[in-house]
Design a protein around this nucleic acid. Structure first.
Length: 149
DNA sequence: GCCAACGTTGGC
DNA sequence: GCCAACGTTGGC
């Protein structure tokens, strides 16, 4: 994040959630790497969400398929740029860095039970791999994960 | 492993 | 522009 980005007030921050199969790129690997380029998105709605990300936005990290739980919080480090893995088409990537692992992972069943998080696009639009999250939903997930802000 | 949901492709 | 066929995702 550049000087301007670091000076932006936190109140304008947006919240997101990205999905990844742990077999493809687990949170633990992400933490070891310290930073990653979020490439490979090939869905227009997901791409538009990547484009809307701003440096400093919070990104929940969800393990899909075999794990089905939110496991950590990341932060947008570099805003959308052309996806280097795309050989054709108009696709973008962003760079994210791990911020903290949730003290307790929050699983899909919990998210469905909770009245706040059950409205999430993660649940209502299951095939979208990059989704916006409301501040209330974000805070509720941290609470369920017994994780300080 | 199965299948429902969904997005994309291509024929017409 | 419609829609059937197909491929992929992801929960169960």
């Amino acid at each position: 994040m550049g000087l301007i980005g670091s000076m932006l007030p936190a109140m304008g921050r947006q919240y997101w959630l990205v999905k990844q199969e742990p077999e493809s790129y687990a949170w633990a690997t992400f933490e070891e790497d310290g930073r990653t380029s979020w490439t490979g998105v090939r869905n227009y709605q997901a791409r538009n969400n990547l484009r809307s990300m701003r440096a400093g936005d919070a990104v929940l990290y969800y393990h899909s398929v075999s794990d089905r739980q939110v496991v950590g919080v990341a932060r947008v480090e570099k805003e959308a740029y052309p996806d280097p893995t795309a050989t054709e088409g108009d696709w973008v990537a962003v760079d994210i860095v791990p911020v903290r692992k949730l003290k307790v992972p929050v699983n899909l069943a919990q998210l469905k039970e909770d009245p706040v998080t059950s409205e999430m696009l993660l649940i209502r639009h299951t095939r979208l791999s990059v989704v916006p999250v409301s501040e209330a939903q974000y805070l509720r997930i941290l609470e369920l994960g017994k994780t300080p802000r």
